[in-house]
Write a protein that binds this DNA or RNA. Structure first.
Length: 574
DNA sequence: GCCGTTTTCGGCCCGACTGTTTTCAGTCG
């Protein structure tokens, strides 16, 4: 039972309570506890063993007991009692955008609707419109909303690497509109979260109506969800919701702050404002006594007014950044310009598309001082992993290109498979001859927790190993992390002075922001690498940097911010 | 159900949009 599953339990409980019309603050308490458990820095079971469950923010006595019940029995009594009273299908109905607990309850009580299928049938047969506060437009809305809901991917979230270019496209098109003075992305996209639910755009305009029309005229608008004076919401190419907010003059600072979020960050900020006598909204600070409004030109002014240092968007998750802002102790985050080289790259010796020479030229053009050529080892046969003999030839090819191309140093390396028993694909003699050794798990992913943990720990204890690549193995839309005790992996990395990778491939982003922050706090060295398989993959470094920034990582935490000379001595290269 | 730099009890962030209403409830972010 991992943190995500416990959080899901508490969220379902919240939905059940909503349906029953319980105290909204009780519902919020469950939702808040679930959120905080989901983003927790530690495994719940190990917190439980230490008797520290109630240290989690939002988890008091009652929810603590329920969490313990879930951990030990797989469910909890209050949940089982409540779900027995309610047909499970109504929870599915409440998941449909636009339908909340009140509406689901109305449908259930008056029309005996207990599933999405029954709901659609009732709408098609015009039985909905006979209910109080319902009408023909509601029926149409329900049918459309269900269609979209069933079509959307299971998580309903889009990877940042997909959403980000779409946002750029839209911004580019709207920039040509004479009625829009500036357009800027906000929301989770601006916070560089790994997945986003929708794209939030803010437009500064002197003519809101014209700006709205320009947005609705975009070719790729496939559906209009909402159309108000300050908010227009559309579906773009049938794949992602895009909200355009038209911002009046004068309140740009509070608006950008508000719509960047996160929600948790904003709630905390507003409580802080209230304690100082102001109601903070997207329009500015309203004095609670006189109701006079103080607007702000910039975001920085908003934080200044509260006496806080300026937290960059990536930090705004209410995970300590407001407290750090009060102490003026915000981190100086890593940036693209700090990266001096890439330590995980594949050539056409294994499953990469390009020659070592082409990779060298591309890395040089990116301004790097070094790049490690780390092709697969022979266990990864599907990726044409190299035999011992091939690996030695590979190293000679690296030497050849090193002599040919000036201005960049290639490191001869491997991404060596960690076999199912923890042994490595190459002998210690072979590994010792290389400049850099990355190890990784690629097969037998279904091993149990104990076996997988021992496997990785054994590999990390090898003295020739430098870096553990994609440490948890998760892949977006394909699989979650393998079952591994990350606490042990972290401890082993720390004890043996090994580097953990933040893999920048949009399909991986592994370590993720939460794990990377734990590693950073423990003092484990990190490498931000692209796992490049073709030249334009080098640009994915952007997404690895995003993860690192969200994990409060500073340049000195990352080995590939070091100059060639320093990294050579760190890796023991002669 | 949670929580305390005004509080161990009484609060709990703030505003927009829709569809149905003649002033608002429900939903969302």
């Amino acid at each position: 039972m991992n943190n995500t599953k416990v959080a899901a339990f508490l969220n379902r409980m919240a939905s059940l309570l909503e349906f029953k019309g319980e105290n909204p603050y009780k519902i919020k308490a469950y939702q808040r506890a679930a959120r905080n458990i989901k983003v927790l820095d530690e495994d719940l079971s190990s917190l439980y063993e230490k008797g520290r469950i109630s240290e989690i923010p939002g988890v008091g006595e009652a929810i603590r007991d329920k969490v313990i019940e879930i951990l030990t029995k797989g469910t909890f009594e209050a949940y089982e009692e409540t779900i027995a009273e309610i047909p499970p299908g109504v929870l599915d109905i409440m998941d449909i955008p636009g339908i909340g607990p009140k509406t689901a309850k109305l449908f259930h009580e008056k029309l005996d609707i207990g599933s999405i299928e029954e709901l659609v049938r009732a709408a098609e047969e015009h039985r909905i419109r006979r209910l109080a506060r319902m009408g023909p437009r509601q029926e149409e809305k329900i049918i459309r909303s269900v269609q979209r809901h069933l079509k959307s991917s299971d998580s309903g979230r889009t990877p940042l690497a997909v959403a980000s270019p779409i946002a750029d496209q839209i911004k580019e098109q709207l920039n040509t509109c004479p009625y829009i003075r500036e357009i800027i992305a906000a929301g989770s996209l601006r916070r560089r979260k790994e997945t986003v639910k929708n794209i939030d755009l803010l437009a500064l305009s002197d003519d809101p109506q014209a700006a709205a029309d320009a947005f609705l005229d975009l070719k790729s608008v496939t559906d209009v969800i909402e159309k108000g004076e300050s908010l227009i919401s559309i579906i773009y190419k049938g794949m992602i919701r895009v909200d355009l907010r038209i911002i009046p003059k004068g309140s740009f600072g509070p608006s950008l702050q508000h719509f960047t979020g996160s929600k948790e960050h904003n709630v905390h900020l507003r409580k802080l404002a209230l304690s100082k006598g102001y109601r903070l909204s997207e329009y500015g600070f309203a004095d609670t006594e006189t109701n006079t409004l103080k607007t702000c030109e910039s975001e920085k002014e908003v934080y200044d007014f509260l006496g806080l240092g300026y937290p960059v968007p990536e930090l705004r998750e209410d995970r300590g950044e407001i407290e750090a802002g009060m102490e003026k102790a915000l981190p100086g985050l890593i940036d693209m310009k700090d990266i001096k080289g890439d330590l995980h790259v594949h050539s056409n010796w294994s499953d990469g598309k390009n020659s070592i020479e082409e990779l060298a030229v591309a890395a040089l053009e990116k301004g790097y001082e070094y790049v490690a050529i780390t092709d697969h080892s022979h266990s990864t046969a599907i990726a044409s992993g190299l035999s011992d003999k091939k690996l030695l030839e590979h190293a000679r090819d690296v030497d050849r290109v090193n002599e040919k191309i000036e201005g960049i140093r290639l490191l001869s390396g491997t991404e060596c498979d960690i076999r199912s028993n923890g042994k490595l694909d190459y002998s210690n003699e072979v590994l010792e001859s290389l400049d850099i050794v990355i190890v990784a798990v690629h097969a037998a992913l279904e091993q149990d927790r104990k076996t997988m943990t021992k496997r990785i720990v054994t590999a990390l204890e090898n003295e020739h190993v430098d870096i553990l690549a994609h440490p948890t193995g998760r892949k977006f839309g394909k699989r979650g992390a393998y079952d591994v005790d990350m606490e042990k992996v972290f401890q082993t990395a720390l004890d043996n002075d090994k580097i953990l990778e933040i893999n920048s491939s949009p399909a991986r982003l592994d370590l993720n922001d939460i794990n990377a922050r734990i590693a950073k706090n423990l003092g484990i060295k990190l490498a931000i690498s692209t796992d490049t398989h073709k030249l334009d993959n080098f640009n994915n470094i952007r997404y690895g940097i995003d993860v690192a920034r969200r994990a409060w990582v500073e340049p000195q935490d990352v080995v590939n911010t070091r100059k060639l000379k320093e990294i050579s001595s760190l890796l023991g290269i002669r």
